[in-house]
């Protein structure tokens, strides 16, 4: 099945200028989302997940942020060359985003209606000409779509009057109200309790399935992407380290970082808690040379300190950026590779 790519990112490098130098956060990110595909992006705090998404939407604060190089194509068009005016339409109709913390995403001094109606109104030139009543109807429908009871009353309510789960539903409704082709959900359940998270994620899953939207689901909870996505990217310190169909990555993780991450999650089956990955995420002011994971990697070799690994295709659609899987490099890595695969 070859689907058309909707969003392509090539070699994206983003840095931040800070006191004392430049932080080299994104170190050549490659990322593809096909039409209708649900893609997961997993990584720990500070690995650059949100920075990547902000670069896509061009909402990265510049300065201090700056894009060193790279191409972001949406429908084949380079988003960095698009005029601001057009970008605003892409943000509404093309790509929308759900943020982690719905309390911070909603303005506390405006009612839900005052925030939701403009989203619909300014989504496209056609909508701007619609009468207020129609816009209100669409807003009510958007809230109804996310299973919120009594939407008429909710439009007049302020965010503080809603619970956390309801606020996140409002944010999802707002993001989907314009029928975007690509939805970016940045940790949509993290600030919620597990039972509420489960409800919100089931709802989100059902809505995107109905609309056949493409989704990028960003999270650090591996279990969530397993339920909701077709393909998975694993990110570490500004690099994509592994990508594969979700099922495959869970049964056969290849990159030492992915393996460490999967091990570290406490399992319902018991058996104690793994020690996790030693060390910590690198300092972006002076990132490690070569593979950025090598200081924490149990299989690190000489080459890892010198050269940055590129993506090696291990099996169909399973790519991993690690020298252990470089079949061309000869004998020195073969034993380690065997051990890692065992």
């Amino acid at each position: 099945m070859t689907r058309q790519p909707l969003l392509e990112i090539e070699n994206l490098r983003v840095g931040f200028k800070v006191y004392g130098g430049e932080l080299h956060v994104l170190d050549g990110v490659d990322f593809v989302v096909n039409k209708g595909e649900k893609v997961g992006l997993v990584g720990e705090t500070g690995c650059g997940k949100t920075t990547t998404m902000k670069a896509i939407l061009r909402i990265l604060p510049q300065p201090p942020g700056f894009i060193e190089s790279g191409v972001i194509r949406f429908h084949g068009r380079d988003l960095m060359q698009v005029k601001d005016r057009e970008m605003r339409h892409i943000r509404g109709q093309g790509i929308s985003m759900i943020f982690q913390d719905p309390t911070a995403a909603l303005n506390p001094v405006f009612t839900i209606g005052q925030q939701l109606e403009p989203v619909i109104k300014y989504a496209s030139p056609e909508n701007r000409r619609l009468p207020r009543k129609v816009i209100r109807q669409k807003a009510i429908q958007a809230l109804r779509d996310v299973s919120l009871a009594d939407p008429e009353r909710l439009l007049k309510a302020y965010p503080v009057q809603l619970s956390g789960g309801m606020r996140q539903r409002v944010c999802i409704g707002m993001a989907l109200a314009t029928n975007p082709e690509l939805l970016i959900a940045d940790e949509p359940g993290t600030s919620l309790d597990v039972t509420i998270q489960d409800q919100v994620l089931r709802l989100l899953h059902q809505l995107v399935e109905e609309r056949d939207s493409s989704v990028i689901l960003i999270t650090h909870t591996l279990g969530i992407v397993r339920q909701m996505t077709d393909r998975l990217y694993v990110m570490y310190a500004g690099n994509m380290v592994e990508t594969a169909p979700t099922r495959r990555i869970f049964t056969n993780p290849l990159h030492p970082y992915t393996q460490g991450l999967m091990d570290a999650v406490p399992k319902l089956t018991g058996g104690g808690v793994a020690h996790g990955i030693p060390g910590r995420i690198p300092d972006y002011l002076h990132p490690p040379t070569g593979c950025r994971f090598h200081p924490r990697c149990p299989h690190a070799m000489d080459i890892c300190r010198q050269k940055k690994p590129s993506f090696y295709t291990v099996e169909e659609a399973h790519q991993v950026a690690c020298f252990l899987y470089d079949t061309s490099s000869g004998a020195d890595s073969a034993p380690a590779r065997k051990e890692a695969l065992a």
């Binding site: 619970s163 789960g165 309801m166 309790d193 597990v194 039972t195 509420i196 998270q197 489960d198 409800q199 089931r202 909870t221 591996l222 279990g223 969530i224 397993r226 339920q227 869970f250 999967m262 999650v265 399992k267 319902l268 089956t269």
Partner: peptide, 27 residues
């Protein structure tokens, strides 16, 4: 309800969950 709401990593864990009691309502 709590147990069946946990996102898990493996099929073996999935099997340990009780019969799905779908989470509904809010605290």
């Amino acid at each position: 309800m709590l147990l069946s709401s946990i996102p898990v990593l493996t099929e073996e864990e999935e099997a340990l969950k009780p019969v799905k009691v779908e989470s509904r309502g809010e605290i």
